[in-house]
Structures are given as structure tokens and as C-alpha cells.
Amino acid sequence: MAIVRFKGYADVEVPVGSSILEAAQKVDAPEGYACGGVCACSTCHVYVTKGAELLSDKEEEEEDILDKAFDVRNSSRLGCQSKILKDGEIEVEITRESLEAFENEHPEHRGKYTKRAS
């Protein structure tokens, strides 16, 4: 089992083979997934701040989608494409882009994770 820590939200234990997105959904962490987790958008964009070596490598398709994301960093991953390959601890920061997407997908949470200018 691996532990995924969503900074500021929750920790969850998931089996090897799970994705970061699946881990987020297990604990209702506010990670977006507009395309349903099929690598067709960048709304599940996260920063992996610890444990990146426990994850699958980025493939070309993921790199192509990340090219469309905002504020991409070396630690950027798509939650839907980041499969956990080994036991250990993974720390994830959900991007503002993903938080906004989550709020758009779940109107009952609008403004809960991002502050809107009035």
C-alpha cells in the first residue's frame, strides 16, 4: 500500500496500481477531472513534491497535455496518468487550475477552495 498526502486536504492509503486521481477521489480531495481521467485535458494537474520515484514515468501523451496546462513545473503530473508503482509515501499539491476545475465540476463547492475577486 502507498500513502498519498494531499497537502492541506487529506491523507489516503491506496493499493499499488492506483492513480493519484483515484486516490484523490477516494478521500474527496478537490482534484479536477473534466475529461473523466482519460488524459484529454489538464484539469487533474498536480505537483508531486515527494515520492515521484514511486510513480510511473511521464509518457508522451501526458507531456503533450501538460504543454496546455498553467504554471507547469518539473514536478507537474496529471493525476490520471500518475500510477503508483511502489509502496511508500507520496506528497501532492493540487494546482490552482485543478482546484478551479473541481469547483466548476461541483458547483456546490464553488468558492470553497479558491477565492473569487468580487
Rank of each mutant, 00 (worst) to 15 (best):
L78S: 00
T49I: 13
D64N: 11
D64P: 06
L55D: 08
E105M: 15
I20E: 05
R96L: 14
E31Q: 15
H45P: 13
E93T: 14
Y47G: 06
E22W: 01
S98V: 11
E108T: 03
E108V: 09
V27E: 01
R77C: 09
S42V: 00
C80I: 14
H109Y: 12
I84P: 10
D57F: 04
R116G: 01
K58E: 05
K83V: 15
I90G: 13
K26Y: 01
S76I: 07
D71H: 02
R96C: 05
G17C: 06
Y113C: 08
V48M: 11
V46C: 05
V38W: 08
K86E: 14
A23C: 12
F70M: 10
I90T: 11
I90C: 13
G36M: 10
N104V: 01
K112D: 06
E59N: 08
Y47M: 05
A69Q: 02
K7F: 14
Y9A: 01
Y9H: 14
T49H: 05
D57E: 15
L54I: 13
T43R: 05
E60S: 11
G51E: 06
G32N: 05
T49V: 15
E97M: 13
Q81V: 03
F102Q: 03
K83A: 04
A24K: 02
S42H: 01
Y47F: 10
V38Y: 13
A101P: 14
V14S: 04
R116C: 00
Y113M: 02
S82G: 07
K115H: 04
T114L: 04
V4M: 08
M1W: 08
K115D: 07
A69K: 01
I84D: 05
D71G: 02
R96W: 06
